[in-house]
């Protein structure tokens, strides 16, 4: 499907790397079924735009804005959410 001939390959990153104020599109949740489902119910669905907001001191856990709500996740969880920058 990808016609990547004259496009540079998109950088794949995880949600944990997002800094305050940055946003990206969620691609995939690499988590056990159960956890992934709960995250999806909270709005973390593939294709959704996720923005990083404030955090506890040290950057962990961080609040993410997704689908009209704000949800705090620890880094250890955010690391498993693959995102794509839409630039």
């Amino acid at each position: 499907m990808q016609m990547g001939v004259n496009k540079r390959p998109r950088r794949r990153r995880t949600l944990a790397e997002l800094r305050r104020g940055e946003q990206a599109v969620l691609e995939r949740l690499d988590l056990p079924e159960d956890t992934a489902r709960r995250l999806m119910e909270l709005g973390f669905l593939p294709g959704q735009m996720v923005a990083a907001a404030g955090s506890a001191p040290g950057g962990d856990p961080r609040v993410f804005r997704v689908d009209g709500s704000e949800v705090a996740l620890r880094k250890e969880t955010a690391r498993h959410l693959q995102v794509r920058f839409s630039d």
């Binding site: 956890t35 909270l42 704000e70 705090a72 996740l73």
Partner: peptide, 9 residues
């Protein structure tokens, strides 16, 4: 095992 922390603000 650690269960993830999810808290809606």
């Amino acid at each position: 095992d650690r269960t993830p922390f999810l808290l809606e603000m």
